[in-house]
């Protein structure tokens, strides 16, 4: 048995067709595709706005999320990601694999190490997703399926970056 096997997982090609149909339906209904990273950005902007509204409003980049008195959370992407969360719960529950509080890590890796990796990778991705105007969902998948040139460049770069860094990041799985 391959170590990543789980009985509730779909055949990857079947999952791919299903994912493609969800994305196609999104294009048909809405005229744009799926995304995720900007929901995290909006949540962060909304959070900082509570504490320091001026720091956000005066920022040349983050200010666009609250321009003209807009609520950073009143956006399609926020509603969509709420759906992703619900869909994830539904799938994990019906697949019998809700793992409350599980920290995935290698057998000899400390919790602190794994948490540090998770946060550091997240920070890097948050920055990179804003620089590239999207992440694996909004740029590689959504733009790639619409045959956008920049999205394919992005996707190839993601794989390249991943393969280069994988040997160095692998210690957390040992």
């Amino acid at each position: 048995m391959n170590p990543t096997y789980h009985k509730a997982d779909w055949n990857p090609y079947v999952a791919g067709i299903a994912l493609g149909l969800v994305l196609l339906l999104t294009y048909v209904l809405m005229g744009f595709g799926l995304g995720s990273s900007s929901a995290a950005t909006r949540l962060a902007v909304a959070g900082v706005s509570v504490v320091a509204p001026d720091a956000v409003a005066d920022n040349a980049y983050l200010g666009q999320y609250v321009a003209h008195g807009a609520n950073a959370l009143d956006d399609w992407m926020i509603f969509e990601v709420i759906g992703v969360l619900l869909g994830g719960v539904l799938a994990a529950y019906s697949g019998g694999r809700i793992k409350r509080g599980e920290l995935l890590r290698g057998p000899t890796t400390s919790k602190a190490t794994r948490i540090a990796f998770a946060i550091a990778g997240g920070v890097l991705m948050g920055f990179a997703a804003r620089l590239a105007r999207g992440c694996t969902s909004g740029q590689a998948l959504t733009g790639g399926a619409a045959l956008a040139v920049g999205s394919w460049v992005f996707m190839m770069a993601v794989f390249a970056g991943g393969y280069v860094a994988a040997p160095f990041a692998r210690r957390q799985w040992r």
Partner: peptide, 17 residues
Amino acid sequence: GGLLLGVGFVISGYCPG
């Protein structure tokens, strides 16, 4: 951005979605 996101992907083990 793609290169950086790929690096962040293998460090954290996830992409944002």
